[in-house]
Amino acid sequence: MTPNTPKERLLNGLWVENPTFVLMLGMCPTLAITTSAINGIGMGLTTTVVLACSNLFISLLRNFIPDRVRMPAFIVVVASFVTMVQMILQAFLPTLNKSLGIYIPLIVVNCIILGRAEAYASKNEPIPSLFDGIGMGLGFTCSITIIGMVRELIGSGKIFGAQILPLAESGKFGYEPITIFVLAPGAFFVLAFLSAIQNKLRIGAAKRGIDPSKGCNGQCGSCQSPCEDKKEGTDK
């Protein structure tokens, strides 16, 4: 697939370089807010909006930002968008805003956003950067929604707040929720197991001859995959 096309960028974020399961970025919101699927979607979409906007603007500004102060400059851009998104959430989705709480302002220091700004947007054209942001954001959204669904299902027998498994009431046969899954340890269990499954699929695909590094954009310096065409220091 040709690198840096919108389609390739979307696919890259969703699967090849999935921020949660492959890059292992943004662990703080991933572990903390995935107690339910709806929280996962809310957090994911909020991050996606911020990520797409910040990627676009940082890419537009990339020739004006001096290299030495790029981190503060990125943070100013990201923080502006986070503030806007939070105000919108407060106005239109107050319940979601309340359940995500401190994790919305913390999007400013989310390492997916700074990571993409540093690794991609500050070195590439605005349009691919925008789609990189959308792809990464959707990858993040899907991952944490899945984590949230698994935790919610096992931990309280619900998915998106709807009771899927009937609970055991006094004397009646039913599901006994394993509460630990909606608590902090459960986040680690689910993340670890989903990463393992995801690695299994990826390694399985690699063994069948599908190149895992397809669409890696030639960024060999930051690449972890054992790829034959690997060249040192060829980051664009």
């Binding site: 006994e176 929720p177 394993i178 509460t179 630990i180 899954f181 608590l183 340890p185």
Partner: peptide, 10 residues
């Protein structure tokens, strides 16, 4: 501990 956190009541 897994069980006591999950099923505190029981």
């Amino acid at each position: 501990c897994f069980l006591i956190i999950s099923f505190a009541g029981k």
